[in-house]
């Protein structure tokens, strides 16, 4: 009975979503119906927000990757928030699971897995670092880069049952990366006019050293996400019985 009710509700919900999906107007970015209004001055612009993102990215932020420009510059405050969500989750996991170490012995992984993972670990870490350092030039950025790094450590945890993340360096990395992000935001308040505003020279778009604060923030995010995700995985491994 419950199952039938669940199926009925789920399919009704699915139908509603499908119908509304077909109702979404398919028009593109341009067109004057998407003008926006500025709440502070009360003026109207004849451009939609997405088209502003596409046309303004290079001049306003110096980044080539528009997604990065949106994530770190236009909506950088949201990114600070999202990093904090992950930080909160990692802290919560550590808070709830920090008791009970050890656990049952697991068999050693076989030779090929052990040596192979030792061999690929540096390359995984390198790929992660590449992804977050080049966030303003190529697809990717702090979150994916950090996740790739964490998956490298995860590989080590899987192939070596005795592999542990040392708690202290991980939590110090995490803290310093977070502090860097927040302090850059506050420096923006100090040197420029608002929180998280760019205060470094933009440089030539397309070069590694360009786009002002974006690479700095993305490196901080990369370290932070990497250390947080690997510490979450490590905490779950630690309490295994």
């Amino acid at each position: 009975m419950r199952k039938v009710a669940a199926i009925v509700i789920a399919s009704a919900f699915f139908a509603i979503l499908l119908i509304s999906f077909y109702q979404i107007p398919q028009s593109g970015y341009s067109g004057s119906e998407y003008y926006y209004s500025n709440p502070i001055t009360g003026s109207h612009a004849n451009e939609s927000v997405p088209s502003h993102y596409i046309s303004g990215t290079k001049n306003e932020t110096g980044a080539v990757n528009a997604v990065t420009a949106i994530v770190v510059e236009y909506r950088g405050f949201d990114t600070l928030g999202e990093v904090t969500v992950l930080f909160t989750a990692a802290t919560g996991v550590a808070f709830l699971l920090h008791k009970g170490k050890g656990g049952k012995k697991r068999a050693e992984a076989n030779l090929i897995l052990r040596e192979g993972s030792k061999l690929v670990l540096p390359f995984i870490l390198l790929a992660g670092a590449y992804i977050f350092i080049h966030g303003h030039l190529t697809p990717g950025g702090g979150f994916p880069g950090g996740a790739v790094i964490a998956s490298g450590f995860l590989l080590m945890m899987l192939s070596y049952p005795k592999f542990f993340m040392k708690e202290k360096p991980v939590s110090i990395t995490e803290s310093f990366a977070g502090i860097t992000f927040a302090v850059i935001g506050l420096l923006g308040l100090l040197f420029a006019s608002s929180f998280l505003e760019n205060f470094l020279p933009l440089g030539n778009a397309g070069y590694l050293l360009s786009a002002g604060i974006i690479p700095v923030i993305y490196i901080a995010i990369g370290f932070k996400v990497g250390s947080e995700l690997s510490s979450i995985a490590d905490k779950f491994k630690e309490v295994q019985k």
Binding site: T68, P139, P144, A147
Partner: peptide
């Protein structure tokens, strides 16, 4: 961008 994140976080 989303694909890299989804692959490493969601699937890994």
């Amino acid at each position: 961008d989303v694909a890299i994140t989804e692959a490493s976080i969601g699937a890994g």
